[in-house]
Amino acid sequence: MTRFHLELIFAGLVFLVGATGVYGATALDTGWGANGPQAGFFPFRVGLILMAASALVMAQAVASRAALGHIAITDRAGMKRVLGFGLPIIGLVLLAQWLGLYVAMALYLLFTIRFTGKRPWHTALGVALGVSIVTFLVFESWFQVPLLKGPLEIMLGLG
C-alpha cells in the first residue's frame, strides 16, 4: 500500500467523522443565542473544519501523488515510527479518564515534545503548561464548556 492510498483512506475517515458531527449538530440549534453559543454551535463548526481539512489533504495527496511512494511499516523502523505516534495518543486518552483532560494533555505534550521532538525540558514544559492553561481558559472560562476533570482540578477547586 502506498502513502497516497493511506492519505486518501485517512482523509476519507476524517471527512466522515466531520460529516457525522455536522449531521448530528443539525438536530440542535447551531447558531448563537442570547446566552451565547447554542448546543450545536461548536460541533457543527468543528465538523465543517474537519471536512474542509480532509478535503485539502485529499487534494494535496492527488497533486503530489508521484512523490507519495511506497511506505513500509512492516520493517522495524517503520513500526517504531507508527507506535511512537500512536501509543502516546492512546496513553493520552487513557490518562484523561483518571487524571482529567488538562493534566493528561499537559503530560502528553511534555513527553511528546521532549522525547519525540527532542526539545529541551524547559521548552516542552512551557508549551505543555501554556497549551493546557489556554485550553482551560478558552473552554471553561470563556465558553463555559466543561471538559473532563480529574482529581487535580477538583482539588484545586476548578472542577
Rank of each mutant, 00 (worst) to 15 (best):
130 G>R: 05
73 I>N: 05
9 I>R: 11
115 F>Y: 15
84 G>I: 11
130 G>W: 07
135 T>H: 00
62 V>T: 02
41 F>D: 04
52 A>S: 12
50 L>D: 06
89 I>H: 04
88 P>S: 13
94 L>Q: 00
120 P>Y: 04
140 E>N: 05
39 A>Q: 14
31 G>P: 03
118 K>S: 12
62 V>N: 04
131 V>W: 03
145 V>W: 15
141 S>E: 09
48 L>P: 07
126 G>Q: 03
95 L>H: 06
8 L>T: 01
159 G>E: 11
19 A>T: 04
6 L>G: 09
89 I>G: 00
41 F>E: 02
146 P>E: 06
24 G>D: 14
137 L>H: 02
71 I>Y: 07
104 A>E: 07
68 L>T: 13
113 I>Y: 01
156 L>S: 05
111 F>H: 09
34 A>Y: 01
63 A>H: 11
29 D>R: 12
4 F>L: 15
106 A>K: 02
53 A>G: 15
38 Q>L: 14
6 L>Y: 07
127 V>K: 01
132 S>A: 15
3 R>A: 14
129 L>Y: 08
51 M>N: 06
17 V>N: 04
123 T>G: 00
17 V>F: 08
99 L>C: 07
157 G>Q: 11
138 V>L: 14
4 F>D: 00
110 L>M: 11
72 A>T: 11
8 L>K: 02
7 E>I: 10
139 F>N: 06
69 G>P: 04
97 Q>P: 00
98 W>Y: 06
11 A>S: 15
111 F>S: 10
49 I>S: 03
76 R>T: 13
132 S>F: 01
139 F>K: 00
39 A>K: 12
133 I>H: 09
61 A>Y: 01
114 R>A: 15
24 G>A: 13
67 A>T: 07
90 I>T: 03
70 H>R: 11
158 L>V: 00
104 A>W: 03
77 A>V: 12
62 V>G: 01
122 H>S: 08
149 K>F: 04
142 W>P: 01
90 I>P: 07
49 I>N: 11
66 A>K: 13
2 T>E: 10
68 L>F: 11
97 Q>A: 13
143 F>A: 08
146 P>M: 09
124 A>T: 05
31 G>S: 04
13 L>M: 14
31 G>R: 05
40 G>D: 06
101 L>K: 06
112 T>F: 08
66 A>M: 02
134 V>I: 15
122 H>E: 03
98 W>A: 12
4 F>G: 08
144 Q>A: 12
16 L>M: 10
127 V>W: 09
109 L>K: 09
55 A>I: 14
150 G>Y: 06
121 W>P: 05
127 V>D: 05
18 G>E: 10
33 G>M: 02
46 V>H: 03
69 G>R: 14
12 G>W: 09
25 A>Q: 02
97 Q>V: 12
87 L>H: 03
5 H>L: 14
93 V>D: 08
28 L>Y: 15
28 L>Q: 11
143 F>V: 09
107 L>V: 10
92 L>P: 06
69 G>W: 13
152 L>R: 04
32 W>G: 01
86 G>V: 04
102 Y>K: 13
142 W>C: 08
108 Y>I: 07
126 G>T: 01
20 T>C: 12
7 E>A: 05
63 A>Y: 10
43 P>T: 08
